[in-house]
C-alpha cells in the first residue's frame, strides 16, 4: 500500500498544545512539510516568537532559538549574517510582528535580509488572553476593545504585509487564508516559494496566514473557519502581493 499521508520528519513526536481549531497547528505542519520537501532540515534555524507559538521549538525537529517578543527578525539577521549558508525562518504573531516588532521586521525586510517570516494573523493577542492586536478589525470586540475597535480611538488595522510589499528589500510577499483545504494548499505553495526565494538569495520573504483563534473569538472552530472567509479575508485580501521571480507583464 502506498503511504499518502504521514507526519512530516521535521516535526517531533509531540502533541500540540494549541486549542482545538487553532490555526497554529496547521501552519506548523505546512512549514514542516515544506522543509521536508526541500530537503533542508539540517540547514534550517527556526525562531519562534513570544505568543501562543512560543513553544514551537518543542514541535519542530530543527534547530530553534527563542526570541524576545517582536525581535525575531533581528535575531534572524544575526543568524543569517553569521551563517549565510543557513536557512532562517521566523514565526510571528500579529502582535509580535506588527506592534512590538514593527521596527525589527520592517528594517530586516528593507535590508533585504535573506530570511523568511511566517506571520500568523489571528487579529488578537492569543497568548495573553484575547486583547486587541494591531490587526484587530474595525468593530471587533476584544478584551481591551470591549466596545469594538473604533477608528477614532484605536485606529485602523495595520496592513504590515502590504507595507512590506512596497519595500525594495522584500522579494516575496503573500497573504493567505486557512479557510478551506484549497486555500491551505495555496498557503503551503507560498511558504515553499518563500523558502526558495531565500535560498536563491533574492531577499526577504514573508507569508501572512489569516488564522482562526476560536478561543478568543469566542466561537466554535467551525464558525471560526467561516469567519475567516466572511470577515478576515474582506479586511485582508489574500493573494501574492510581490514576487520578484515573476517578470511584470507588459
Amino acid at each position: 500500500m502506498k503511504k499518502v499521508y504521514a507526519k512530516p520528519k521535521s516535526l517531533k513526536d509531540a502533541p500540540f498544545h494549541y486549542c482545538p481549531g487553532c490555526g497554529h497547528s496547521i501552519i506548523h505542519r505546512l512549514i514542516a512539510e515544506v522543509i521536508d520537501e526541500l530537503g533542508i532540515r539540517d540547514k534550517v534555524i527556526g525562531i519562534p516568537p513570544a505568543g501562543c507559538a512560543v513553544l514551537a521549538y518543542n514541535y519542530f525537529d530543527v534547530d530553534m532559538c527563542e526570541s524576545a517578543h517582536g525581535r525575531g527578525c533581528a535575531v534572524g539577521t544575526g543568524f543569517k549574517r553569521a551563517q549565510p549558508d543557513k536557512i532562517i525562518f521566523t514565526y510571528q504573531g500579529d502582535g509580535d510582528m506588527a506592534a512590538i516588532g514593527t521596527a525589527e521586521t520592517l528594517h530586516a525586510a528593507n535590508r533585504g535580509e535573506c530570511i523568511t517570516s511566517i506571520f500568523v494573523n489571528n487579529a488578537v493577542y492569543g497568548m495573553t488572553g484575547g486583547q486587541m492586536a494591531p490587526t484587530t478589525m474595525l468593530g471587533q470586540k476584544t478584551t481591551t476593545s470591549p466596545m469594538g475597535r473604533r477608528p477614532d480611538v484605536e485606529g485602523y488595522p495595520l496592513m504590515i504585509t502590504d507595507i512590506i510589499a512596497t519595500l525594495k528589500g522584500a522579494a516575496f510577499v503573500a497573504r493567505h487564508s486557512l479557510a478551506t483545504p484549497a486555500k491551505i494548499l495555496a498557503a503551503k505553495r507560498s511558504i515553499k516559494k518563500a523558502f526558495e526565494v531565500q535560498m536563491a538569495g533574492l531577499g526577504y520573504s514573508l507569508v501572512e496566514c489569516l488564522s482562526p483563534c476560536p478561543t478568543n473569538w469566542k466561537v466554535t472552530p467551525v464558525e471560526a473557519f467561516k469567519l475567516l472567509e466572511t470577515r478576515m479575508e474582506r479586511e485582508f485580501p489574500i493573494g501574492v502581493l510581490k514576487d520578484v521571480t515573476k517578470k511584470p507583464k507588459g
Partner: peptide, 13 residues
C-alpha cells in the same frame, strides 16, 4: 534593541 538581538543570533551561531 535590534542590535543586541542581532548579537544574540550571532552568538548562538
Amino acid at each position: 534593541t535590534a542590535s543586541i538581538n542581532m548579537v544574540l543570533g550571532a552568538a548562538a551561531s
